[in-house]
Structure formats: structure tokens, C-alpha cells
Amino acid sequence: MTKSRKPMENRAPFTREEISMEVRRAALGMASMIAAFGQMQGQLEVAAQYLGVELNDYDYHGDDTDKLMGIPIEKHFLHRVVMDAYDHAYQVGPAVTEGVDWDERAHEVAGILSGFPQTDYNGEPSPLDRLNPQKLRQVLDTFNARYMLDIGLDLTIAELALLANMGESAVRTSLSNEGIKTIVGTMKGEKNQVRNEEAMTWLLGRRNFVPTKRFGEQADNVSDVIRSLFNSDSLPFEVALTKALKTTTSGGDEPLQQAGIDPRFVEELLSPNGSVDVDVAKLERLAVALQAPVPIFVGKAVTAILTRREADT
């Protein structure tokens, strides 16, 4: 049976609708504080103006679905920042290809995580509560982890776990097996970290990690990412090829067409049951189109093709 690749929209552990609902709840928590601690006269009106809708009260009460659905959250800048962070964290959606200023978004995400109320006025946890983290906080933490990886910072075990979609104990075991050691954080109280280069190499060997698509001045880094993919001994050829295609083609076939590569040839290469002839010249053109190291790419491709044939006999 042919294995299908994971659809782009299924890369994220949560749907946009789930996150939008939690953004509404976070906004309601802010309104609750405004209503409680605003000016002695008119604080309820200010809370309503902030939310964009007048409510009977501005606190959490169990199942608040009806109340939350009345909030026009798409008009809030908070919602735009979170949705962009969602797209970037999981490499899905329009923000990935729209050239968003991720430095600016990182600054705004930090403001949300540190500045938004973590409870409502009555102490009921919001989706941003550090002690009771929910889906929204996980999305923003994953965005931060990817941003830190991309700008060359070291990552904690928790951040690696978010990007690899693994449990922290499984990450520790994998790092130990691969001989990767953590280093002490540079700031007091900071958790142990994995050096950026080692973190990237390790992540590229995980099936569920999706490399960041590069644009503009970042495009020069693509070849480094692709080289790491095919140099990784722990990454099967088909998985490395899938990640390389996602990194370089942005969902289109233009680079393949320019190299004279039929997309069906690539589909057969990706399929565990695909029947492909060993065409070294075509494999070399594909490697060049993907900016992959040609000898390593061709060698691994031929090995994968011959291994399939042997398994079928």
C-alpha cells in the first residue's frame, strides 16, 4: 500500500478554529480586567469598546461558547498576530508566502505572552496561563522556538519537543542516543540548551519537523538546509526528499520543470512502492534543481531504488 504524505493543513496539532476560539477567550480575559480595574465610571463601556461587542459580563463562566462567538475577533490585531504565528510555527497558510516581517511578529508575540492577563478578574485561567498552558500558548511557544532556531539561537529541550512534535522525554533519549549534549544556559535560571547547529541537524532528522521556507535575503540559507537533509544518516531518502521539496519549491513544480523533471518521476521516488528506473542523469538534474549535494543525493536515491527492488523480489 502506498503511504500518503501528510496534508499541509494537518501539520498543526490544532485547527485555526480552535485557536480563534482561544484568542477570543484571551481577549475576554483582558476585557474582564478592564471591566474590573478601569475608571470607576464607564469601565464596562470601555471593556465593550475593546472587545467590539457589549456583553452582560466580562468574566469566564464554564462553557462560554455563545458569549465568545459574539466577539468579532477577526477585527482584533491580536487575532492577526496569532494567526500569522500559527502559520509560521507549523509552516502552513498564507503568512508563510506573504513575506511577513517575522522579527516584528516575534516582538508582538513576546508582548502577548508576557503582557496579556493569564486569568480573568476572578482568577480563572486564560489560554495564556503559564501554569495551565492551553492550545494558544503552545502555538505561540512553537512560533518562538522556530524563530529562535532560524536566527541562530540555542534551543531548550521543550522547544525542540514543540518543533519535532515529540514528548520531552523522547527528545532527551534521542539526543543521548545521537551523542548530543546540552549546555548550560547563559542567563541565570535559564534551562539547559542544545547548540543551534546541533539542534538544526537533529531536527532535520525528525519525520515531523518541517524546515522553514526561506524568502528574500534568507534564501541563501536554503542550500545549507538541503545539504543537512541529505547528509543526515538518520533520515530516510524519501523523507529527506519530501522535506527538500517543501523547502525549495514552495508547493510549485517550477524548479522541476526548468530542470526537465517530470513531477510523476518525483512522485514515484517518494512512494515506498514506486517503480523507478535508475536514471543517473535525471537524478543529477533533480539534485541540482533542489540545490542538493549531487554525489550524496544520487547515491542515496540509487540505494533507495535498488532496496525497493530487492524487497519486491
Score class of each variant (00 low, 15 high):
residue 72 P to S: 10
residue 39 Q to W: 01
residue 145 A to T: 10
residue 24 R to L: 09
residue 208 N to K: 12
residue 307 T to W: 09
residue 11 R to S: 12
residue 175 L to M: 06
residue 158 A to D: 14
residue 233 D to P: 02
residue 1 M to F: 13
residue 245 L to S: 07
residue 163 L to M: 11
residue 303 T to H: 10
residue 294 V to Q: 10
residue 299 G to R: 06
residue 31 A to W: 02
residue 53 V to R: 06
residue 270 L to I: 02
residue 180 I to K: 01
residue 278 V to G: 07
residue 87 D to W: 04
residue 304 A to V: 04
residue 11 R to M: 12
residue 152 G to A: 10
residue 58 Y to V: 03
residue 12 A to E: 07
residue 187 M to F: 10
residue 33 M to N: 08
residue 279 D to Q: 08
residue 38 G to C: 07
residue 308 R to G: 04
residue 228 S to I: 04
residue 203 L to A: 06
residue 269 L to N: 01
residue 279 D to H: 05
residue 16 R to S: 10
residue 263 P to H: 06
residue 278 V to Y: 06
residue 202 W to N: 01
residue 25 R to P: 05
residue 286 L to V: 01
residue 126 S to D: 08
residue 198 E to N: 06
residue 223 S to R: 13
residue 6 K to C: 14
residue 292 A to P: 03
residue 252 G to F: 09
residue 152 G to D: 10
residue 191 K to S: 15
residue 238 E to S: 09
residue 112 I to W: 09
residue 254 E to P: 00
residue 93 G to F: 09
residue 157 I to G: 02
residue 88 H to Q: 14
residue 86 Y to F: 15
residue 110 A to G: 15
residue 229 L to D: 01
residue 165 N to S: 14
residue 134 Q to R: 15
residue 265 F to C: 03
residue 184 V to I: 11
residue 304 A to R: 05
residue 200 M to Y: 05
residue 231 N to Y: 12
residue 89 A to Y: 09
residue 135 K to S: 14
residue 128 L to S: 06
residue 185 G to Y: 08
residue 299 G to T: 07
residue 73 I to Y: 07
residue 276 V to K: 01
residue 205 G to T: 05
residue 284 E to C: 04
residue 107 H to P: 00
residue 90 Y to K: 02
residue 40 M to N: 12
residue 89 A to I: 04
residue 255 P to I: 05
residue 193 Q to S: 07
residue 219 A to S: 13
residue 147 Y to I: 08
residue 267 E to V: 03
residue 155 L to S: 05
residue 164 A to E: 02
residue 190 E to A: 14
residue 33 M to W: 13
residue 205 G to I: 03
residue 247 T to G: 03
residue 244 A to T: 03
residue 212 T to A: 15
residue 160 L to V: 07
residue 288 V to F: 02
